[in-house]
Amino acid sequence: MLSSFLLSYREGLEAALVIGIILAYLIQINRKELSRFVYIGAVLGALINIIGGVIGFKEAKELEEASEEVFEGIMMLTASGLIAYFVVWIGNQSRNISQSIKEKVSKSTNSAGLMTLSFISVFREGLELAIFTMSNIGAKSTSVALGSMSGIVIAIATAVVIFKTAVKLNLKIVFKVFGIVLIFVGAEMFGEGLVKFFPSAEEPLETAGMLLFALPSFYVFLKSDLSKYLKKI
């Protein structure tokens, strides 16, 4: 349940912050009338993800035990790959994330463009969350659902509080914190995913897999911060 909560909170928070930045920027450029198209795109993205996620999780749960182990292993390795991609993406960001989003909005200041942008923003995060969820099909459905729903609800509430109180938030710092947490989650998923294919070498393979994932991930994720710190010494 904890891993489902953390992953859904991270994905939900990113989607909610992106939508919040889009809405705030529309107000800033006096195009508030386009906000409804942002909401429509976000709701459509969420609905498609929920329907697809429920169907996919249900079908995955009905697999035979041997097939379920292989499927869960594939999903775990895929999920850890997505986390690795997130780590590289954040690690290579040279600009403020909110500025990048605003530039995309500036290029999409029409109803269809904004609807598409918000749809893709929500759908992408939901798709990643669906893969994370299906990597945990061995757990109880109620536990996974409760962890995912609570994570999403708290993520949305967090984003609302941030924008309602006009907190000047550096999104890179937020994603750095969650990135460090997710590296540990991704390392565990990678190690457990390998074990699903080679159960005879369970403990040493899982440990090796976790180290193989975590060490380069931390290096890529923190190398710019470390180089800045070393220059100050």
Rank of each mutant, 00 (worst) to 15 (best):
Ser108Phe: 08
Leu146Asn: 01
Gly81Leu: 05
Thr142Gln: 09
Asn170His: 04
Ala16Arg: 01
Ile55Pro: 01
Ala187Phe: 00
Glu14Thr: 13
Ala201Glu: 12
Gly147Pro: 05
Leu117Gly: 05
Ala66Cys: 07
Gly138Thr: 04
Glu69Trp: 01
Val177Ala: 14
Ile162Leu: 12
Phe37His: 04
Leu23Trp: 06
Thr142Ser: 10
Glu65Pro: 01
Ser217Glu: 07
Gly12Lys: 03
Val43Leu: 13
Gly73Ile: 07
Ala60Tyr: 00
Ile22Tyr: 04
Glu33Gly: 08
Leu127Gly: 11
Leu226Phe: 14
Ser111Gly: 05
Ile180Gly: 05
Lys107His: 09
Tyr9Gly: 11
Ile27Leu: 11
Ser35Met: 05
Ala214Ser: 15
Phe175Asp: 10
Val195Trp: 03
Ile55Trp: 10
Gln28Cys: 03
Ile131Lys: 01
Ala157Pro: 11
Asn96Ile: 09
Lys231Phe: 11
Leu34Ile: 13
Ile137Arg: 02
Thr78Cys: 15
Ala130His: 06
Leu205Phe: 13
Lys104Pro: 10
Ile154Thr: 12
Ile90Tyr: 03
Glu14Asn: 11
Met76Pro: 05
Ile40Pro: 07
Ser111Pro: 04
Glu206Met: 14
Ser111Glu: 14
Glu68Asp: 00
Ser121Gln: 02
Ser80Gly: 01
Ser135Trp: 04
Lys228Phe: 11
Ala42His: 04
Lys61Ile: 06
Val185His: 07
Leu211Trp: 15
Ile152Asn: 09
Ile22Glu: 06
Glu103Asn: 14
Gly113Asn: 05
Thr207Gln: 14
Glu125Cys: 04
Val88Trp: 06
